[in-house]
Write a protein that binds this DNA or RNA. Structure first.
Lengths: 342, 342
DNA sequence: AGCATTTGCGTAAGCCTTTTCGCAAACCAA
DNA sequence: TTGGTTTGCGAAAAGGCTTACGCAAATGCT
């Protein structure tokens, strides 16, 4: 690879000048004539010069790499579609701003992120971090913040960008209540497992308040976000509370589990049992019946996370922001089910 | 951050020795006594020393970063579950070997990968590249290989690791034929769009050979892997060829599209119409009826890609390898459909 | 004991940039 | 003209690490 030195020689300028031209540094010392500029640019193109990024990082202290981090707490297949979309948009925005994206999925050992992660965040390789963490693995956050790097977290409330999931849950529950249902069972996850669980239930409670119901009085079973756990939970719920006319699951996967349980118990959705999910995963529309759920603006979230991180890196102070969900009413809560051909 | 120099001072050794101890270089010059070793290790721990990776990369020429590249030809939501799983496993294996994973989704402009990608691969940031490309964007491959970096491609036949999709398609078609079906329609994608299309159809042809049928004689409509394109294609197929008893779609999404079309046309699956997919995406089991498809060993693929790349980086010459698919027979090709509760 | 080898470690060169500092020339105002 | 400012550029110091080279001491061999 041609080095900057060779470019400088070919253009008959000093190393410093070549650097100034090619790094397009908006710095105070970035002064050069148009003629020099052309000479350097030509030389650079003729030689096919590509800057050596490690050298640049070493000298400038900036690597143009940001890391996207999500802890490998579960093998978490459930979060995959969510995370992937997020990353897709983060990568897009970052690359548009000249940043590369490094992926890291640190394991947490004895409530400490593994050593290699600690090395990474102090390695000088990173200009910033986007931490996707709804698992309250505070140790991760603590270490990440401690590194002093610009970091942006998502997954909890008090972060620079978050999705207002409470509002989404509120609307969803309100929709169900408006249909006249009062015998509602919930499929959740242990509160301490996931922050999302708490905020969604808050939304449910808010809607229940309006009709004088209390969440703790209603039946609830917990799963772990997986389909099978949802099926299990739904079975338990319906066994103990056959009077239930609604099952609200904390995510779509568990809702699909509830579909299975319902089929098994010969309860037709939505006639005999209404089911709702959360997340609006791509196949939610393809289920039979299609699933009423809450759509999350993942694309927006990814974009905002990236652009706010870049702001942070550039020394700006981006304001806090909340994104809003949209309720998706589909067949699983409607009384007019599209008939299967008989 | 404490630098190596400080560690060396604290341990009363030279910079060189400290480096030798801490970089655990298996190099010939890596000679030191156990006593020195301890001193250095202690000093390093006391100071919380983390090596500066850009500096190391600059000096050694190795960055410990590998890139996972997939061209952004379509926004390709369809490939997301596939790619995500792949990346998950690649990241795992890489991080176990001390490599970081950088993600790059270069756009292709005028059949050239965008400039920033070319910069990246010549930047010194990368020790190797895993290129996921079933789109024949040969320009990407050409440039990637030209960089001289260890690179490993997947998506076409002649690469170090690939999935034997032909065999999978063969088994699938054989299964359908064994059920007695001869009126088969196909939902494909334009051959030139995607290499996978070709190899899968080869498998179909091989099975058809055995019963004296020719693929070109059978009806075929092309989509673009998306659900809606599959629905469209199935509609066309069934309109022109109402005698069809089977629709074989080239992937699961288009198969789900065929489900939709069937429902619309009041053809019950599998009684009135058999449908097959390919890929075995997670919800294939959850559809009603569940979808007969071909499972791809994505996990294995990810692992192999990563470990072969690392071999390559370390100067070994990993052998070529093919992974095998498994046929998943489910309700959509079975005559005993689980009944919906009525 | 004498020689050859190995072991353990330090010196210093180098990796390729960025960036501070400073100088000369060119410009400006009075 | 003179003094001050701006412009354009070069010399050289960093930045933190690896590694080739070389030397002394320890070891092995006969």
């Amino acid at each position: 690879m041609a080095s900057l030195k060779e470019v400088a020689q070919r253009a008959n300028v000093s190393l410093a000048t070549a650097s100034r031209v090619l790094s397009a540094s908006t710095h105070s010392s970035a002064r050069y004539s148009q003629a020099t500029r052309q000479a350097v640019v030509n030389a650079s193109q003729e030689l096919g010069y590509k800057p050596n990024l490690p050298a640049r990082a070493l000298a400038s202290g900036r690597s143009n790499i940001v890391a996207v981090v999500y802890p490998r707490v579960l093998t978490s297949p459930f979060s995959a579609p969510f995370v992937m979309k997020l990353i897709e948009h983060i990568e897009r925005v970052c690359s548009e701003h000249g940043f590369h994206v490094l992926l890291s999925a640190p394991r947490i050992e004895e409530s400490q992120p593994e050593e290699s992660y600690l090395k990474l965040i102090n390695s000088g390789y990173l200009d910033g971090i986007i931490c996707i963490d709804s698992f309250q693995s505070s140790s991760l956050l603590a270490h990440t913040l401690e590194s002093g790097l610009p970091a942006i977290i998502t997954g909890t409330e008090d972060c620079l960008v978050h999705i207002d999931e409470t509002a989404g849950a509120y609307e969803l529950a309100k929709h169900v209540l408006a249909l006249g249902h009062r015998d509602i069972g919930f499929i959740g996850v242990p509160d301490e497992l996931n922050h999302r669980a708490q905020v969604r239930f808050e939304g449910f409670q808010r809607a229940l308040d309006e009709v004088g119901l209390e969440l703790p009085d209603l039946p609830r079973e917990d799963g772990d976000f997986s389909l099978s756990s949802g099926e299990q939970a739904a079975h338990t719920l319906l066994a103990h509370h056959p009077e239930l006319t609604v099952i609200m699951a904390l995510n779509d996967f568990m809702a699909v589990g509830a579909y299975r349980a319902a089929r098994n118990l010969k309860r037709l959705i939505p006639d005999d049992l209404v089911v709702t999910g959360y997340d609006d995963m791509p196949i939610a529309t393809e289920l039979v019946p299609s699933l009423t759920t809450v759509h999350q603006p993942i694309d927006q979230l990814g974009e905002r996370l990236a652009s706010k991180l870049i702001d942070l890196i550039e020394g700006k102070e981006p304001p806090q922001e909340a994104l809003t969900t949209t309720l998706q009413v589909r067949e699983s809560t409607s009384f007019v089910q599209e008939l299967m051909p008989s």
